[in-house]
Design a protein around this nucleic acid. Structure first.
Lengths: 199, 199
DNA sequence: GTCTATAGGAAGATAGAC
DNA sequence: GTCTATCTTCCTATAGAC
């Protein structure tokens, strides 16, 4: 079937994400991906120069998609006070992890793969850039609504909350115990209340 | 050269850790590992039934070793008050990450590998068990010294601090900015002070 | 136990007919 | 651009002589 190279790339990226989510990065071979996309293997190397190029696109796509998913979830949460907003945001992220564990496992795999491969160097950096910046915006906007400001640089607070959920998500994937994990979220939201003062 | 199977296994595990630390899990093939251990490839499968068995041992060994390293570092820190102790612990862990980034990257790789492979199922769980339990002991002991107790279950506080450093470590590996990361540690230690009361 | 040699297959990438 | 067939390399694992 005839189609533009860009269209084919999109289909292959989508197929790669399905295979990687289901079976892990290590088993996502060019063969498996082409097969998932129902294309002959040969297409692979006139759609992409190399497998790395595909992996790079996959990481980019996943980061954008997760950000969109989680933003939507955050915005549908209670907004009574800053505590509720922060806890709501943390909970929205964690809910997403519980609902899509394999997808998040994949992001960890992509991060480590990127950190090992010099050619994917900035992929890992960009992944976090998406989250950090977005998180920062949400924190600033939320504090502003309630007439508060942070006592610490908001970039640090952003990194703090991101680190907690990111670490907790990995921890939950390995260890389980959802109830305890949610207690950690509550603890974190409460701790964040100690980082604001009236404006 | 003649040696016991157990001795050979130990040498292969040590070689595997060197290769995995240097080149990543994906490139740590049985060939590369045997070569690093200066043994013919054939030894591999009368020392281990399979590669998975080796990976499982590697994960176990790494977890024990890291725990020992970090414990030693924690114990050499100031103990003026609980804040100093907690910040010291977090800092000791983070220093270890900065000094041995590849080693920590490896633990993330092993965690994801374990989560993908049913035969390594409990490897990931045990990895976290080491850290959580140890962390819990340290927190309890430290609070006790200063006549304090936690207002939350100590297992939750333990998981909170572990999540922060684990998430922050991965974040730092990808993003860098050590100064900001250390500000997050200070923030976290201060937050933990809101989780204690006099005994 | 130890080693060499090799099986048996899967990987990424390409050549070349259409 | 498209596809089949194939190259080359590397993988885990084993067979079998010593």
């Amino acid at each position: 079937m005839r189609m533009s190279a860009e269209e084919r790339r999109d289909l292959l990226v989508a197929a790669a994400i399905r295979v990687m989510t289901r079976d892990g990065v290590a088993r996502a071979t060019t063969r498996a991906i082409a097969s998932e996309a129902e294309m002959p293997l040969g297409v692979f190397h006139y759609a992409f120069h190399s497998k790395q190029e595909l992996v790079s696109r996959v990481a980019e796509t996943i980061a954008q998609r997760s950000k969109a998913d989680i933003d939507a979830a955050v915005l549908s949460r209670p907004t009574d006070d800053l505590f509720q907003v922060v806890l709501g945001g943390l909970t929205a992220y964690f809910d997403h992890v519980v609902d899509h564990p394999d997808e998040h496992l994949l992001t960890y795999e992509l991060t480590t793969a990127a950190l090992r491969d010099p050619e994917l160097e900035d992929v890992a950096r960009r992944q976090y850039d998406y989250y950090l910046k977005e998180n920062e915006q949400l924190l600033l906007a939320a504090a502003d609504v309630f007439g508060l400001q942070f006592t610490e640089p908001v970039s640090v607070v952003s990194r703090y909350t991101l680190s907690v959920v990111d670490g907790l998500a990995l921890n939950w994937l390995a260890w389980g115990d959802e109830d305890q994990a949610r207690q950690v979220l509550a603890l974190t939201a409460r701790a964040a209340m100690g980082m604001v003062r009236p404006r």
